[in-house]
Design a protein around this nucleic acid. Structure first.
Lengths: 256, 256
DNA sequence: CGTAATTTTGACGCGCGTCAAAGCTTGTGG
DNA sequence: CCACAAGCTTTGACGCGCGTCAAAATTACG
């Protein structure tokens, strides 16, 4: 028992906030398993702001867990237009979208000084075959990613700019909260422009939104520092529907 | 060797076009493995159009592979507004977004008479621990789903209505083609309204788009029957950016 | 066949993208 | 520590794509 605790701290050292282990450990890890995990995790020198962790079309070898800082993943259209597909905060994992293609489909760029740990995928995969809890955890993490991407799709497809921002803010709030940080008072790691890009909006729109939210007393923002002042109001917005309250058109799908 | 072929056909019978096996088999399956796989796959009676395969919040027990027909997955906003998060054609798998939450986050509804096979997840998971190829396949499939969801997000966040339709049509084209059906001449399993919903558009817009595409000679449509007449034109549209740019390149982004 | 659901068409308006230009930061070098 | 450049953010003006409303036409299904 006590030995296990020691091992736990070893891991924490290697990959302090890593979701993978956090999710995995509660399940069922023997001491040996922990040791094996510990061995395959690589440390890396921190990335400077703007530095690439990997680029699109790079060969896929490992997934990464953010320890500190933040990373954006982007796709580039043929014309060179950037689309941000995700922000990755401490404790979150990236690179999972590359497994099937064996090359990274997107770029991963540090938004600020960022340290990650690298988890070579081949090793992880063979470990997962040996450790049932680990396999399950891997699948869970990927499933969650799928779910969240779909939620995001939902958000962008059907919501107004206002609603998208509310959703995004609440998402960050929750993610910071989960990490033990304040969920009402945090520093957004990305620029307004990046946030706008992610949400499918123009930077100008984002700027006007922040202004409006501030006027409405929903939040207070100074640069990247944000204080959410009216969580209920934000939740309201995040759930709201585009315009009329009444159902437009009687299409219902309950036939069975 | 010959024995293996026999076993293969056994599987085909149980789950004719199932991606899972299609992707898995090329890897490395022993006869015993095949037999085990065969055993866990469940057949089900076909679903009638409009019938639910599962509902949001249902307990998650299994993933499903579509054998024939088509299924849409939807999320419901608190107000009862439907958002379609995906269409699932024969050979495609659904339910992967439920693993992490242990409940289905969305509804799965048959668009027409549809038969699926059910793959109990617990069994699959323990099999995957025994069969390395299977574990890898599972991870690949999920990774691909993540990638495609992100592509879709990209599409919806940044493209005009026109571009979204072109993208969607080409996606269906490719998926039908992959199944050995015509990639230029097919029957869309969903209503225009559903397609519009999926792409984040109003049904009226969808209707006007089809009309315009037809006028421009891009396609011919009669009800759900569609003939793509100008693949190049569609690809052009799908790649186009709102602003002025006619950069021109044969290179496609590698999918899968 | 009749009724309901879906698709189509036209008119209209608003949200948000685009353009342009003026503040602000942030980072760098002297 | 200041000055300058590059990049962000903000603000205002303006227009258009696409959502909304309304209603007719068509199709699907019991």
């Amino acid at each position: 028992m006590e030995q296990k605790v020691v091992k736990l701290s070893t891991i924490r050292q290697a990959c302090s906030e890593c979701n993978l282990f956090q999710l995995c450990l509660p399940v069922s890890l023997e001491n040996d398993d922990v040791e094996m995990l510990d061995q395959i995790v690589q440390r890396r020198r921190p990335l400077a702001r703007g530095e690439h962790l990997y680029r699109a079309h790079d060969e896929f070898n490992a997934i990464y867990a953010v320890r500190a800082g933040a990373i954006k993943t982007t796709m580039l259209s043929p014309e060179g237009e950037e689309q941000i597909t995700g922000f990755h905060l401490p404790g979150e994992i990236l690179g999972l979208d590359a497994i099937s293609g064996s090359r990274h489909p997107c770029n991963a760029i540090a938004l600020e000084t960022t340290s990650v740990c690298e988890i070579p995928f081949d090793n992880l995969e063979s470990l997962a075959a040996q450790i049932p809890g680990l396999q399950h955890t891997l699948l869970r993490i990927m499933s969650k990613e799928i779910f969240e991407d779909q939620e995001m799709l939902y958000a962008v497809a059907k919501r107004t700019a206002e609603e998208r921002l509310a959703i995004a803010l609440l998402s960050f709030s929750e993610r910071f909260g989960r990490r033990g940080l304040s969920s009402r008072n945090f520093r957004l790691p990305m620029s307004r422009t990046d946030l706008a890009n992610y949400l499918g909006l123009a930077p100008e729109t984002m700027s006007r939104l922040f202004k409006r939210f501030q006027e409405q007393g929903l939040l207070h923002a100074e640069g990247k520092e944000v204080v959410l002042k009216d969580m209920d109001g934000l939740h309201e917005l995040a759930r709201a529907r585009p315009v009329t309250e009444k159902d437009h058109r009687g299409g219902r799908h309950s036939k069975a």
